[in-house]
Design a protein around this nucleic acid. Structure first.
Lengths: 238, 238
DNA sequence: AAGTGGTCTAGACCACCAT
DNA sequence: TGGTGGTCTAGACCACTTC
């Protein structure tokens, strides 16, 4: 009984949709019926249903009911804050990470503005090449303020840094701002990636914030043009 | 008194943030204080605050209070479901639209899968080149199922089709799925756009759904590499 | 008229934070 | 200890859809 009630209900319904027990285009039980099924109040049921709606699982229709959306087409590659490791595992690809650079640096002017640090701060710099199906197609450059991440090793970087920070260090990631653009190649790109004949590269700049709204990480994820894909689900208005 | 209470409060706070009355990193009044200010119940206040949090305006901290963020609201280029016209106006650029193709077609196989229509359906096809600051840099290809859009004119397409559909036809757009990738140039791209030396183009595929979860529009928005930018704000977990 | 989801209320208990 | 946001409850009225 550790979890919230509404989250338990949400996860239960998601499981039922993904297992096929609740099929696309069929109607969910009404809110009042769910109140009885889960022995809870209507507002709690509505909290769970609103979460399902936001995440693209159901469509609510006034006077009619809630209907299961055909979510099978929604295979979220990079949407949200999913890390490379989670992503590769989800898609079932053969993936490999090479740590190309690792260490503490003094931030230059560009990085100081991006990470909101001063020249007195020290910053972790991690550069990793991502190999999928035998080709090096993604270059991740991560910068962490040492104030939030006192200790880091090359070995941790070979795995998932996020997993380490959340589970071991106990940092709580709250939100992120993502910017996607297409840039010209840099020396590093040519040096660390298998680029074919391409002249440009897709750059995803990620600003990651903690629970207390402090910026603790800046990441540049550089993707080879032909392998880049981003999927987004958005609701209009509320 | 037409609007919802929580939406009125939300818009009021947004206005206060944007006007500078509520400054970044300052604390909002507590929920109980807001209850008194707005003469409403706490759940209604919380509904407004959750909306502010989701949209990146504030950060809520248990035991401390809600704080104004300064992260977001710079410039949201394509995030959400903003149309080209809204976007150009927001950024204050000189923009111009040329309708290159307009008419009813029978969908080919590719389009039939994308729009979920059969060969018996008729589909509006609209191709528009978007000129910003004197350069033609975006090519929008829109396809509407005629079932939902019985009437359409070239003149409407020169303005905002969305505005026409929502205000005149009364269609209620509910959600959309967006896919971003980088493709090779097509004949149309070379023909209708000012492309410089680029060999590739950023393609945003947009699947737009109505209130009743029916797919009514498929759009391909093709952006010249150097002019493309996408910004996204995402919260972790709930 | 009956059922549905959308909004709102008034109150309760909890976990967390500051003091 | 008092204030804060997070969760949950039980009930009410409304607008919309269906019969």
């Amino acid at each position: 009984m550790r979890e919230n009630k509404f989250m338990t209900i949400y996860e239960d319904v998601v499981a039922n949709i993904q297992s096929g027990q609740l099929r696309p285009n069929t109607k969910l039980p009404s809110e009042n019926e769910l109140v009885e099924q889960y022995e809870t109040s209507r507002e709690t049921i509505r909290k769970a249903l609103n979460l399902l709606s936001q995440n693209g699982y159901i469509q609510k229709m006034k006077g009619k009911g809630s209907f299961v959306l055909d979510v099978s087409r929604f295979d979220f590659p990079i949407s949200g804050l999913v890390s490379f490791k989670e992503l590769a595992e989800k898609l079932g690809h053969e993936s490999h990470t090479v740590v190309e650079e690792f260490g503490l640096i003094k931030p230059d002017e560009e990085l100081r503005t991006q990470l909101h640090v001063t020249s007195k701060d020290t910053v972790w710099k991690v550069v990793r090449a991502r190999e999928i199906d035998g080709e090096r197609i993604i270059l991740d450059k991560d910068f962490f303020n040492k104030k939030f991440v006192p200790h880091l090793t090359e070995d941790i970087c070979r795995g998932s840094i996020y997993e380490y920070l959340e589970k071991e260090v106990g940092l709580k990631i709250s939100f992120a701002k993502k910017e996607i653009s297409v840039d010209e190649l840099t020396e590093d790109d040519r040096h660390y990636l298998d680029l074919k004949e391409y002249e440009h590269i897709v750059v995803v700049r990620n600003y990651v914030y903690l629970d207390d709204a402090s910026l603790f990480q800046y990441t540049e994820s550089r993707h080879r043009l032909d392998k880049f894909r981003f999927v987004d689900f958005a609701r209009r208005g509320v």
